[in-house]
Design a protein around this nucleic acid. Structure first.
Lengths: 149, 149
DNA sequence: TTATAAATGCAAATCGTTTGCAATTAAAAA
DNA sequence: TTTTTAATTGCAAACGATTTGCATTTATAA
């Protein structure tokens, strides 16, 4: 009886409910709460950041890790890796935004969303447009090699 | 007297020597050995992979971490992060190759070097050319924001 | 309402990486 | 060459993010 008797903060999340039902998974408090946090924040958040924004003791940190894995598999959140060894997650803007990239300050870690992508030649443009300096980018491709298909 | 009396495996590494002298750092066995390993391998290697390729007990794993940080600062190696939480390093092809990206198999982690970069529209090309399937890419920009400059 | 698989909390375990410290060593100075 | 000194190393312990085992709780189907 930790949080199940006062569902005041959010109501629906029909998308979540539908997807979970489809997979025979449960619609739980933590999962809804996490999605709501992500919905309220337009920036990639770490597990801990989500944890600390949750009403105190709402759920365990381990549960957040597990939930985010699940949500990622359901393509409801997008995972980002900025190379500092910490995973960050953003709500997949259902229909809206979609595929985009980020401009991260190597000094303070400020994150700016970049509308479209096209590196290298665009580095200067991106730098100018956002007042950044010394802009570089990181690009890697992922896929299934012939043997693994 | 672990490795200082039989420098049979490599001779010069003048570039390393010059750069180290310039910074009042020492030209040590481990540093030369690490650079040689990287020189012999055209793929990004993890600390552990370098460690295991070193003659047994040649140096401590911690030393490899420290050396790679140093070499990265000296721009002699390039660090890559494929999002699996492990750092990989490649020798900076002094003059040759230069800036390039990788195509990583999400199944077996095979790494293929990609000549040039231009994501998104090129994903299909890259997939076809390398026999990969389900190719995606990850792109992030880094730089100094106005406040941090 | 009951039955059951899924989800959670908790603590301990992992894994990559970093760090403190005493001992070693490369390189500058004598 | 020998001495001096700061840089480097090995070792073990510390760290931080993430994962996992297990007993308990809970959402949901029956």
């Amino acid at each position: 009886m930790k949080h199940s008797h006062h569902h005041d903060k959010q109501v629906a999340l029909p998308e979540l409910t539908r997807q979970l039902r489809q997979k025979a998974r449960k619609v739980t408090g933590p999962r809804q709460a996490i999605l709501n946090i992500l919905r309220q924040h337009p920036h990639p958040l770490t597990n801990k950041e989500i944890f600390s924004r949750l009403p105190k003791g709402e759920c365990d940190l381990a549960t957040i890790y597990r939930s985010l894995h699940l949500l990622e598999n359901m393509a409801m959140v997008q995972r980002y890796d900025f190379g500092d060894g910490v995973a960050r997650y953003e709500l997949v803007a259902a229909g809206a935004a979609g595929h985009h990239h980020h401009l991260i300050c190597t000094g303070c870690a400020e994150v700016v969303e970049i509308e479209d992508c096209f590196p290298h030649k665009l580095e200067k443009q991106i730098a100018d447009r956002n007042g950044f300096k010394a802009v570089t980018h990181k690009l890697e491709f992922f896929g299934l090699c012939p043997e693994c298909q």
